[in-house]
Each structure stands twice: as structure tokens, then as C-alpha cells.
């Protein structure tokens, strides 16, 4: 995590360049899937900043994803906002929700923190169901075509959608790399490794964790808003516990506390589920088995193991 100079930046920029070319050699179907994976990876990156770097194991991130999704989708639906303002509203929505969640939930730690975040997310989901006439409930609603245009591009068509997803992903990836290499990023890791010692060194654990969770919420909000605007669907099902588990699964698989882990995890898991649904309808069984296998045999994930064994400079 420390040192490494320009190598990490080169690696991350190379990945972004490869993804940029991917739209030319992938079929439209796979390119759309890759766009979806990149959006989900932004969500997982946000989760990774809280869980992987700061040690906050939250089971309530679906609340933050849904906050971003509805903060972008509802103004578009009700007042006809364009894609730009709606996206900004979504990012802000995720951040605000995370700050509010953190103010309450960060008074607890460990197992209590997990249960409290789970319960707030569940309350959020039920609230979305309760206001089903506005939110669409479990059925959700389609975002109007007029709100899915940005600077004259139609985000519902293949190329603009892929580029928009890549842009958000690239921004998220580079910001997270810069963040964890900054002094604040080191403080986040210090909270994960030893909260008491960081407190003795004069850091306030509460404010550091609150800031980390809020940044995580901004990422989740961006992912939710991007999903609403790029794929044109907003629904309460994104607030279910399942969407709190998914980013955890991606991060654990790719490697918690690695910048590229969330993307790799999302890519591998998405592909695995895609293959599994081709073979059987019981894909949830694979998700469950993957979770168990990961905590049992590879608690550090793919990139975590690679970093430990071979590539020490991996951020």
C-alpha cells in the first residue's frame, strides 16, 4: 500500500485504457454487461473504502445505493430533470444518507454496527414500499427517455452509455487511488488496524469513520444514480438486503483493501452468475457457496493474495 511511485498510476490508467477499447472488440451485449459491471464496481469501490480500508463492515449499503437511485430518479420522474442535475442529486443523496446513517450507527461498532446498518436499510426498504404510489414499490418505474439525455447524447444507446459508465468508473477508481495514498487514506487504514492507538495519536475515530462512510455513500449514490440514468430503471428491489450483500461479495472476492479488487470481484462474480444462470436457475446457491468458500479459503480475496505473495506494491 505504501510507496510504489508511478507504477500504481500506470497500472490503473492501463486498465482504463483497456476498458476504453473493450467496446470495439466486445459484442454489444457484452459491452452493455461490462457497463453494468463498471457501475456495480463503483458501488463496490464505495463499499471497499468503508469496509476494506476503514474496517466498517456495513450490511446497509443497499440503503445508500437506493438513496442515490431515488434522488436521481424521482426528480427526473416528477419534475423532468435532465441527466446532469439528476446525477448530481443522486451523488448528494447517497452522501447525505451515509452521513445521517453514520451519525447514528457509528456510535456502535463491530457486530452491533452490522445489525444497526442492516436494520436502518430494512427500514428504508420498507419505507420505499410504504410510499409505493410515489416510489413504484417493488415494481419500480422506468426513467423517462427525456431525462436520459446528457449534452445531446442519448444515454440509452450503446456507445454513450458505455462511455458514461466508463467515465464514472474511471473517476471513481482514480479518486479512490489518490484518496488511499493521501494522509487521510492512511488514517482510514489506521482506524481499521488499531482504533485505540490512533485515538492516542490524536485522531478522532468518529470523525474519520464518519468521513469515510460519507465518501462511501457518495460512491454508492453515484452508482445508484448512474444505474437509474444509464439503464432507465428505478425500483425498491435495489434497497433489499441482497444489494448490501453483493458489494461485500465483490470486495471479498476481488480483495478487500485493494483499489482494483472491487472491479475484479464484480467482473468475476457477474461472469460466474451469468454462466451459472445459463446452467441452472439456482444461481443464489452459487452466491452463498462463494461467500462461504471465500471466508474459509481465501479471506484476502484474489488481489489480496497476489499482493501478499508476489506484487507488494499493489495499492
Amino acid at each position: 500500500m505504501t510507496g510504489g511511485g508511478v507504477k500504481p498510476w500506470a497500472l490503473h490508467l492501463a486498465l482504463i485504457a483497456v476498458l476504453l477499447t473493450a467496446q470495439f472488440w466486445l459484442s454489444p451485449y457484452h459491452a452493455t454487461n461490462l457497463a453494468r459491471i463498471m457501475v456495480l464496481a463503483v458501488f463496490a469501490m464505495g463499499y471497499n473504502l468503508a469496509f476494506g480500508y476503514t474496517g466498517l463492515l456495513s450490511l446497509g449499503h443497499a440503503l445508500l445505493l437506493a438513496a442515490g437511485m431515488y434522488a436521481a430518479g424521482l426528480p427526473a420522474q416528477l419534475w423532468g430533470w435532465g441527466a446532469g442535475p439528476a446525477f448530481i442529486a443522486g451523488v448528494a443523496g447517497g452522501g447525505l444518507m451515509a452521513a445521517a446513517l453514520g451519525l447514528l450507527a457509528l456510535r456502535t461498532a463491530g457486530v452491533s454496527f452490522m445489525i444497526v446498518t442492516l436494520m436502518f436499510a430494512q427500514a428504508g426498504y420498507l419505507t420505499l414500499l410504504y410510499f409505493a404510489p410515489v416510489t413504484g414499490g417493488d415494481d419500480g418505474f422506468a426513467v423517462a427517455a427525456a431525462s436520459r439525455r446528457l449534452l445531446g447524447f442519448d444515454l440509452s444507446t450503446d456507445t454513450p452509455r458505455f462511455l458514461a459508465a466508463l467515465l464514472i468508473f474511471a473517476a471513481g477508481l482514480l479518486i479512490s487511488l489518490a484518496l488511499i495514498r493521501s494522509p487521510f487514506g492512511r488514517t482510514m487504514v489506521a482506524m481499521r488496524e488499531n482504533e485505540e492507538r490512533s485515538r492516542m495519536l490524536g485522531y478522532n475515530p468518529f470523525t474519520v469513520k464518519l468521513a469515510a462512510l460519507t465518501i462511501s455513500g457518495l460512491y454508492s449514490g453515484a452508482a445508484g444514480a448512474a444505474y437509474a440514468l444509464l439503464f432507465g430503471y428505478v425500483g425498491a428491489s435495489f434497497a433489499t438486503i441482497q444489494y448490501s450483500i453483493l458489494p461485500m461479495l465483490y470486495v471479498l472476492l476481488g480483495g478487500a483493501g485493494t483499489t482494483l479488487g472491487p472491479f475484479l470481484g464484480a467482473l468475476v462474480m457477474f461472469t460466474l452468475i451469468e454462466v451459472a444462470t445459463g446452467l441452472t436457475s439456482a444461481y443464489l446457491f452459487f452466491v452463498g457457496a462463494a461467500l462461504v468458500a471465500l471466508v474459509l479459503f481465501a479471506p484476502k480475496g484474489i488481489l489480496g493474495t497476489i499482493r501478499e505473495r508476489w506484487v507488494r506494491w499493489l495499492p
Binding site: L57, L59, V111, M114, I245, M248, L252, L284, F285, V287, G288, A289, A290, L291, V292, L294, V295, L296
Partner: peptide
């Protein structure tokens, strides 16, 4: 907790 979530799904 992560393992029992996996168990739940299975």
C-alpha cells in the same frame, strides 16, 4: 456473519 449469510442463501 459472512459465512452464515452464505449459508442463508444456500
Amino acid at each position: 456473519i459472512v459465512a452464515t449469510i452464505g449459508l442463508l442463501y444456500m
